[in-house]
Design a protein around this nucleic acid. Structure first.
Length: 285
DNA sequence: ACAACCTCCTGGGGGC
DNA sequence: TGCCCCCAGGAGGTTG
């Protein structure tokens, strides 16, 4: 699933089609994804206009002019596609209820465009909440710092990681500390900072944490710039691909030489709480 | 409170 | 070709 850079890329692709156009109607292919859709989901969206499509961590948030916000999470395998100016019988076909495999929600817009949410594994979800109560939503309320701004620095990590016995890997995946990192960018950031994923979070000194904060912000910024990473499912909303995966230093590169100049180490895959970590045996400590 | 599992679900790839 | 097992970008829930 998409991590923050992929979700931000999706947001940028969707915003021009979504914002400022009325939602004529919504087709919903099933009653639930990871969770049940909220009551009268499709009816509540019909006739509304998306005033702004934003993002918080890995969540997309579409503010509606009726005072509610639509929260969308892509889970592991969710994606959107935008089809402009749907023409002829194809559109008619869709409105009659024919959905392609794993298409779960179709937004029919007044502009004539169609936005389709597809999610094979169905770990994603959508919810509606009063915009004023968005900060209190259970999935939003506990989120930590965005890794995109100045607030994420060594001091912040020092106070967040103090006395933490858990690994750096687990601490960086904890969305209540930094919100938006996932399995790929945690491995990449730790490699850039020269820190082992298994290292106890509370054991890193301030200098190391400053390097880590810098590495997280840098890798996230570069990945957003590149349009995210395309592994299996993630594509941009127009069907094109992000290309940050070509710049992975360690992710999914077990057995390859460490790309750090002069290092000479080998990248290894380890498993922590059931998830893969990739790191260099030589230059990460 | 914390940390290490397990779980939801489908599909792709590798080994035999 | 088929089958079976493992793996996958998330994260809430349960266990100890």
């Amino acid at each position: 699933m998409p991590e923050l850079p992929e979700v931000e890329t999706v947001r940028r692709g969707l915003a021009p089609a979504f914002e400022g156009t009325r939602i004529d109607h919504v087709m919903q292919g099933r009653p639930d994804l990871r969770f049940p859709f909220p009551e009268r989901f499709a009816d509540r969206l019909a006739g509304q206009t998306v005033s702004h499509l934003g993002r918080r961590a890995k969540y997309l948030v579409a503010d509606l002019d009726g005072g509610e916000s639509l929260i969308m999470h892509l889970g592991m395998s969710g994606s959107f596609r935008v089809e402009d100016q749907v023409t002829g019988g194809d559109s008619f076909h869709h409105e009659r209820g024919k959905l392609a495999a794993h298409d779960h929600v179709v937004f029919h817009l007044q502009s004539g465009a169609r936005i389709t949410y597809n999610d094979p594994r169905r770990f994603g979800f959508m919810d509606l909440v009063e915009t004023a109560r968005l900060p209190d939503h259970p999935m939003i309320a506990r989120l930590g710092l965005e890794p995109t701004g100045n607030a994420l620095d060594g001091e912040f990590l020092a106070s967040s990681f103090a006395d933490k016995r858990t690994s750096l890997k687990a601490a960086l995946l904890d969305q209540s500390i930094i919100a938006g990192l996932g399995n790929i960018y945690v491995s990449e950031a730790l490699w850039r900072a020269g820190l082992r994923p298994e290292r106890e979070a509370g054991s890193v000194d301030l200098d190391g944490l400053e390097q880590l904060a810098f590495a997280v912000r840098e890798v996230i910024a570069e990945a957003i710039e590149a349009g995210g990473s395309t592994l299996r499912d993630h594509q941009l909303t127009d069907g094109s691909l992000g290309y940050f995966q070509h710049r992975f230093a360690v992710y999914d590169r077990a057995g390859e030489p460490c790309p750090r100049p002069g290092c000479g180490g080998e990248i290894q895959r380890t498993v922590q709480s059931g998830r893969s970590s990739f790191s260099c045996t030589h230059c990460q400590h």
